[in-house]
Amino acid sequence: MQEEASVGLMGALSALFSGAVWVLQNIAMGFYNIGYAVTHPNLWLDWTDKKAVMRFVYYGGSTELFFAVVALVLVVLVAGFIHRPFMWGMVRVLEGFANTVGRFFAWAGLLMVLQQVIIVLMQRIFARPDIVFGFGIPLQYDISWYAEELKLYNALIVTLCATYTFVQGGHVRVDLVYAGVKFRTKKVIDMLGSLFFMVPMSILIWMYGWFFLWRHLIVPKPSASDTLERLLMKSRAMRWNVETIGFSPNGFTAYFLFKILLVAFAGMVFLHAIAFFCRSYLEWKEGEESENKYLDKDTLGEGEEAYEGTH
């Protein structure tokens, strides 16, 4: 019995060691893969070549890409741990990116309201079945097309404004433990949350969203289980087959845009998870006086502080 337990323990330790070696090898290969991709862009960016398209599809959801990103993140984090102003700079850049994208696409809410008003006017007052816009070349679609397009505006707000809302502290949260703990404990919780919730969630969404996107852009349809060799074989019969089917006969015909937004959402959440981890670490390191340092939050103006964060 003791010998079996000893063998089991040795097997577990051996598996852990092999796993650690595998991870380190892949991180090291990540630097090589980054260099190779940068120096050979024609192999994956020249989309006149069908094999290049298939390489792009494969590596976009591959282990190689994951470890290349991990390698870059590790380099940036190590540099930030060594030189704290560099990490603050990275936080400001990533939060600025989230704010800029979010503030721009938040205007989609206004467009959604205006378009809905136009649809109602055209249907109820002018009794028109379509809406025509034209500056030399008329753009004419059925009203049902514009009605279904409203979903796109909603998707723009949900996917591209999520990290902006996070920066602004606008997401609903339930504080059962967090609100009652000390400042530094809060920052530890934030760091763990970004590493064990935000990062894995964004990676899973990216993996599912990436192949979900490409299955609606090309045929033969790629699969997450396809090897590179199999995809290169499929490239012989590859052709573009962009999804243009709506839910109604004259409905919205660009539903592939929703798949692109899903991938963009995952990428932005991953980037902000890194930014949030770095901010939490820096505030933990520097203490309460650094809370919300360099944070670019929206304001309703002087005298409206009581209403901020409630909209």
Score class of each variant (00 low, 15 high):
Gln2Val: 12
Glu4Thr: 14
Val7Ser: 04
Met10Pro: 06
Gly11Ser: 08
Ala12Phe: 13
Ser14Asp: 06
Ala20Leu: 13
Ala20Val: 15
Val21Leu: 13
Trp22Phe: 15
Trp22Ile: 12
Trp22Val: 13
Leu24Lys: 08
Gln25Gly: 15
Ile27Gln: 02
Tyr32Ala: 12
Asn33Leu: 04
Ile34Trp: 06
Ile34Ala: 04
Gly35Pro: 12
Tyr36Asn: 10
Val38Lys: 09
Asn42Glu: 14
Leu43Arg: 10
Leu43Cys: 04
Leu45Val: 04
Trp47Phe: 14
Thr48Pro: 04
Thr48Gly: 11
Asp49Ala: 01
Phe56Val: 09
Val57Trp: 07
Tyr58Phe: 14
Tyr58Glu: 03
Tyr59Thr: 09
Ser62Arg: 05
Ser62Tyr: 14
Thr63Arg: 10
Leu65Tyr: 04
Ala68Arg: 05
Ala68Met: 11
Val78Ile: 14
Ile82Ala: 09
Pro85Tyr: 03
Phe86Ile: 14
Trp88Asn: 03
Gly89Glu: 00
Leu94Phe: 10
Glu95Thr: 11
Thr100Asn: 06
Gly102Gln: 02
Gly102Glu: 01
Ala106Lys: 13
Ala106Pro: 08
Leu111Cys: 09
Gln115Cys: 09
Gln116Thr: 15
Val117Thr: 10
Ile125Pro: 04
Ala127Trp: 12
Ala127Tyr: 14
Arg128Val: 12
Pro129Arg: 07
Asp130His: 14
Asp130Trp: 15
Ile137Val: 15
Gln140Arg: 15
Tyr141Trp: 12
Glu148His: 05
Leu150Pro: 01
Leu150Asp: 00
Lys151Asp: 00
Ile157Ala: 00
Ile157Tyr: 04
Thr159Cys: 13
Ala162Thr: 11
Ala162His: 04
Ala162Glu: 01
Thr165Phe: 10
Phe166Glu: 01
Gln168Lys: 01
Gly169Gln: 03
Gly170Trp: 04
Gly170Pro: 06
Val172Ile: 11
Val172Lys: 02
Leu176Ala: 09
Val177Cys: 03
Val177Glu: 06
Tyr178Ile: 08
Gly180Phe: 12
Arg184Asn: 12
Lys186Phe: 06
Phe196Cys: 13
Met198Leu: 15
Leu204Gln: 08
Leu204Val: 14
Ile205His: 02
Trp206Thr: 05
Leu213Ala: 00
His216Asn: 11
Val219Ala: 02
Pro222Phe: 05
Ser225Ala: 08
Arg236Tyr: 05
Trp240Cys: 02
Asn241Trp: 08
Ser248Arg: 12
Leu262Trp: 05
Ala264Lys: 03
Phe265Val: 07
His272Ala: 00
Ile274Asn: 01
Phe276Val: 10
Tyr281Trp: 15
Glu283Val: 10
Lys285Ala: 07
Gly287Glu: 01
Glu289Asp: 13
Ser290Val: 07
Glu291Met: 02
Lys293Asn: 07
Lys293Phe: 11
Tyr294His: 11
Leu295Thr: 12
Leu295Glu: 07
Asp296Gln: 13
Lys297Asp: 00
Glu305Val: 11
